[in-house]
């Protein structure tokens, strides 16, 4: 059993490396083996090297950050709420981020919109979590408050889009999710924040091995089970906001990556952690590869590609191993 799980992690690691390769080196003209070999040469100032350094690597890094963050955030929320439908955007983040993005397009002509999305995500999730209450916290309340805020703010977003028809195309395009450039937070800083949160999550994750027990069981030394839940929810809000900073709003990954990982490796969170982050990153890297190459030279918005490949992959796993999700 244990060997199988480690084997799964290794396979997912290779899948991740494969998708990373595709995302960075492959293009419309092939699988880019020569590009890959050339990338090992130092001081290469050719056009290819510049493309790699300035465009491809940063894109791939953002894809990884977004994939890992969303997958982890989804895993936290699904476990804490014991609800397989829980997704990172439950806490009002998607609409908050959306509002931030739409407003930035409206007032700043879409410069640094992902940063405004990040701000909107942080504000709305804080709002939802505090409405759900820290002292008399309940996950049901959180989900319902999040739902209400999502609906309210979504209506607001639609209003803004409808009333500004000249900018509505760029708003809709950006809202579909893209690996983006922003000048306010450099890739280095993004990576730094990412590694800090990832490390933090890695330390915390085995605690979910205890939280997977029925919450009705009471142990005298565990008085504040809610505290852990709130902790994990805040953590997932941070992770999701970070993913907005990297890639805008990307639905679906946060639901399917944790669920598929569970189907692959079961519910030992120490193994699940690795399978989950590799899978989340792979899905987005692969989606990025497709979004660039599928109808070259046009780019399909990443969020749409994620939906196109995510849904079939998810249904495939459901038909094979969906039993594991039944109650």
């Amino acid at each position: 059993m244990r060997k199988n799980k480690i084997f799964s992690i290794v396979i997912l690691l290779f899948l991740f490396l494969g998708c990373f390769y595709l995302s960075v080196f492959a293009g419309h003209d092939g699988f880019g083996v020569d590009l890959f070999l050339k990338s090992f040469q130092l001081n290469d100032r050719s056009e290819d090297a510049v493309i790699l350094e300035l465009i491809r690597y940063p894109r791939a890094i953002k894809a990884i950050v977004a994939g890992v963050c969303l997958a982890l955030a989804g895993l936290f929320l699904q476990t804490v709420s014991k609800n397989p439908l829980a997704e990172p955007y439950i806490t009002g983040i998607s609409s908050g981020a959306g509002l931030g993005i739409v407003l930035s397009v409206l007032f700043f002509n879409s410069a640094n919109y992902s940063f405004f999305g990040f701000l909107g995500a942080m504000v709305s999730s804080l709002l939802v979590i505090s409405f759900a209450g820290f002292r008399k916290f309940s996950i049901t309340k959180l989900i319902l408050v999040g739902l209400s805020i999502n609906i309210f703010v979504s209506a607001l977003i639609s209003m803004i889009i409808l009333m500004n028809s000249e900018k509505s195309y760029s708003m809709l395009y950006i809202l579909s999710g893209n690996l983006t450039e922003n000048n306010l937070v450099s890739d280095k800083h993004l990576l730094l924040i990412f590694f800090v949160i990832l490390l933090f999550s890695a330390f915390l994750i085995p605690k979910l091995n205890f939280l997977r027990l029925d919450e009705g069981m009471v142990f005298s030394s565990v008085k504040h089970k809610n505290m852990y839940s709130i902790f994990f929810i805040i953590c997932s809000a941070l992770l999701t906001s970070l993913s907005v900073l990297a890639a805008g709003i990307l639905g679906f990954i946060g639901i399917i990556a944790p669920l598929i990982s569970k189907m692959i490796v079961g519910q030992d969170f120490r193994y699940l952690f690795f399978v989950n982050i590799f899978l989340g990153a792979s899905l987005i890297l692969f989606a990025d590869f497709l979004s660039r190459t599928l109808i070259y030279p046009m780019q399909i918005p990443l969020g749409l590609v994620v939906a196109f490949i995510g849904a079939p992959v998810f249904v495939f796993f459901l038909t094979k191993k969906g039993d594991i999700l039944n109650d």
């Binding site: 091995n209 205890f210 029925d214 009705g216 142990f219 569970k262 490796v265 519910q267 030992d268 039944n326």
Partner: peptide, 25 residues
């Protein structure tokens, strides 16, 4: 230790893994 009447079990675990959950308490 309080064991309620109805409880749900996490999926995809074997007996040994399920019991070992308590060590992460």
């Amino acid at each position: 230790f309080y064991l309620p009447q109805k409880i749900s079990y996490p999926k995809g675990l074997d007996v040994e893994e399920y019991i070992s959950s308590v060590f992460f308490k």
